[in-house]
């Protein structure tokens, strides 16, 4: 029997939840293309709301496409970190991280010290949140026009904007 991507990922991460959304619940139940469930995407959108001013409806397709390109190891790091963060969110606010307001989310990340640590794929929860969630969401947005228009850049490095972005006349 051929395993779906979700089944493969579950095999890699196990199904522990530590009181928050389990990795099982963070992984998509219906498709093997988009690895995250709606709850998983909600968590990333909360991160995006904290770190970037673009509107959620503009951000979601960018984040969704980015996560869809990640390899299994990266998805594993992302969902295990998000699961742990969700458990902290429930402890602090009695709600899933994906349901927090921007102010609440910002307070939680600050409480964890995410803005005071180096980004590391394997490390403390704060270091991993910065690597797998904050910097990954920022990377997705800052390599896509949606996230760089505020810099006056329509074809950022990392985005396949093609020749039309580089012509003699604006």
């Amino acid at each position: 029997m051929r395993l779906t991507r979700r089944q493969t990922l579950l095999g890699l991460v196990g199904a522990s939840s530590a009181g928050g959304l389990s990795v099982y619940e963070l992984l998509d139940r219906t498709t093997i293309d988009g690895p995250l469930s709606e709850a998983g995407m909600d968590g990333l959108l909360t991160v995006a709301d904290i770190v970037h001013p673009a509107s959620p409806e503009d951000v979601e397709p960018v984040i969704s496409a980015y996560v869809g390109r990640l390899n299994d190891e990266r998805v594993r790091g992302l969902v295990t970190t998000l699961s742990e963060l969700d458990s902290r969110s429930r402890r602090h606010f009695g709600a899933s991280f994906g349901a927090l307001s921007r102010a609440q989310g910002e307070r939680l990340l600050a409480t964890l010290g995410v803005n005071r640590v180096q980004s590391r794929p394997e490390g403390t929860l704060a270091e991993r949140v910065r690597y797998h969630l904050v910097n990954s969401v920022l990377y997705a947005l800052l390599t896509y026009p949606t996230g760089t228009e505020l810099f006056g850049i329509g074809n950022p490095a990392g985005f396949p904007g093609g020749f039309p972005s580089h012509t003699e006349e604006p």
Partner: peptide, 20 residues
């Protein structure tokens, strides 16, 4: 570069880079 913002407060982009 926009992705300099990922460097955080150690980056010359300093204020821009605050992930929060």
């Amino acid at each position: 570069e926009p992705t300099d913002a990922l460097s955080g407060f150690d980056s010359p982009a300093g204020d821009l880079a605050d992930p929060l």
